[in-house]
Design a protein around this nucleic acid. Sequence first.
DNA 1: CAAGATTCCTGGTGGC
DNA 2: TGCCACCAGGAATCTT
Length: 272
Amino acid sequence: MPELPEVETVARGLAALLPAPCTLTDVQVHCGDLRRCVDEEKMQELKGQPLLGIHRRAKYLLFEFRNLVLINHLGMTGSWRQIIPGQEKKHDHCLLRFSNGADVVFNDPRRFGILEVVKKGTEFDHPSLKFLGPEPLEDGFDAEYVFQSTRGKRTPIKSWLMDQRRVVGVGNIYACEALFRAKVRPQRLASRLKRNEAQALIKGVQSVLKQAIAKGGTTFRDFKQAGGGEGEFYAKLAVYDRKGKPCRRCKTSIQHFVIAGRSTYWCKVCQK
DNA sequence: CAAGATTCCTGGTGGC
DNA sequence: TGCCACCAGGAATCTT
């Protein structure tokens, strides 16, 4: 599922397909019924705009054009791929044609994705982006921040980690993996996190995200890179989707239960 | 007010 | 083999 490493991988893949200078020459919205209905008129305003860059903020992709920004969220099953005309598939929602000859298509079977055009400069005022927490791989996500902002929070640390207002980009898979690396049980209340554990958690989050980016993300069922390739981090997972399998550290059987409706995996020996 | 539950959606899977 | 219940989960919305 697209979390930070997967979205970063897609951003890099698209940037490679669409190097500057590159202008959007055509927009086709085939089926705009995503989580929020795609505003086709606004999408058409992108036509003729030079593409200046493709960036990631949290789990959002930002296509920066001269005057406008296309905000895209992959949801659960969103993917971009390059096609040659006539190669459209089921669940292709939108096609972007560029002056370098590249046609890229957004496909999303489960339709949890978002495509929205906003004026450049207003993208971070968008309700979906306005209240996002710090990037986990940038300054601001440090032990002091984690320790202070978990005080008084009577929610499991795993839920805290997945709350995009606290820190962005961490979803179910990497929350499980980061907590394993930090040796902290996912069900521990955030308020009970000690200072040294906050430090360990940061290290766990950052190390797993960096390694996953290096492997092109994790393909679990759906995720595809911009080129259609699969992420190779699945083989490196320590706990996620490993119920009953031996812990890579201590050989104890990996446990599975549900926290806040989300599948959770952990080692009862390694994590305290 | 915060935190948990529910909702959206489709394809893949496992059980019978 | 066919059918069907169930599961996957990011984020918005609802409920407690």
